[in-house]
Design a protein around this nucleic acid. Sequence first.
DNA 1: CCCTAGAATGACTAATCAGTCAACCCCTAT
DNA 2: ATAGGGGTTGACTGATTAGTCATTCTAGGG
Lengths: 188, 188
Amino acid sequence: MSDKKQQLLEASIDLFAREGFWNTSTASIAKHAGVATGTLFNYFPSKDALIDAVYMHLKHEWLQHIQRDYPVRADIKSRLEHIWYRNIDWGVRFPERYNLKQQLSLSGVLGAEAVDYEAEELAFLHELIQEGFNQGIFKEMSVDYFNSMVMAEMDATVRYATAQGLKDMALARLIALSSDVLWSGVAR
Amino acid sequence: MSDKKQQLLEASIDLFAREGFWNTSTASIAKHAGVATGTLFNYFPSKDALIDAVYMHLKHEWLQHIQRDYPVRADIKSRLEHIWYRNIDWGVRFPERYNLKQQLSLSGVLGAEAVDYEAEELAFLHELIQEGFNQGIFKEMSVDYFNSMVMAEMDATVRYATAQGLKDMALARLIALSSDVLWSGVAR
DNA sequence: CCCTAGAATGACTAATCAGTCAACCCCTAT
DNA sequence: ATAGGGGTTGACTGATTAGTCATTCTAGGG
């Protein structure tokens, strides 16, 4: 990815998180990125396309963070705990990015491409859940619902940890607690 | 509340849900409500104030719905189940309203007044949770965190039910399942 | 040193927006 | 009948916006 494109994405994330995407002008993004307004439209055909790109960029970073050191061969619980820990870690470390990502996915501004991108990359989580069901360790429910539940509880945990400014020990304790709440909720 | 004010709120909810609040013009709201643009500003000093009012209106409706037939004297679990059921019922019956309300609360557009309004009316849920802690039936965690968890799981359930178009029996089964997941997650 | 192609520029435009205000309408009290 | 006043109107304004495009710049091959 070219320098300028990267700068434009970074500037967009900054400003979107600070002011909201709906009242951040393309002019201010270009200025903040240190390029001319016309340049923005060399890289992104429209503001909507830029927003989509920002979303996909954030999602990609997030997934990269989660998949780091993913213990492919470990048992289900350990793998789920890895995802749990890494997700919350990302959310707490980059609260503006985390929040922006959530906001974009709820806002209804994303184009079809960005929405499709969603499911595709989360395949490894789906597989993990499916495997759990095959082994009969979870209560009976659909994979999709299980997945929503996991995401929702992670989200609640990230928000709480960020609001309280939890770090280190206190954060580790919250993560352990939340993981326990999830597991005892969904396990048979 | 005057007729026109009610019409303006209703029109705003419609259009905000359909197009997003950030690209719904005050002119289109007035038109949709059957009044002149100037009239809107007789009732709301600015678009921001209108958005706040929409949020508070939705929140009020939601709380009214939840508190209907609230079994004040029942035990903790029953009361929590009542809230659970009534919340999901509202979300599934009014998906655009539900979604708009969530979107507004995440968007950062709400003024201080609307945000304060939040905590105040949820007092009865806080009390319920606190009572549960006093009785020692929940795992050790903060009331706020418990509260976020409850909201997050309800949210996941509403979203899933809406996405799948669940009704009647299927919906009742999902509600029972989700309630069980929550309870076995948080209970000691 | 020159030439060319693609990247970068920023002044510009056409459209849209929130909010204003002078005029008007209609109801009520005198 | 008339005066007054609060509610309603919609044309209007000044500001802002996404996106364009003629022009300038730059890097690299000949």
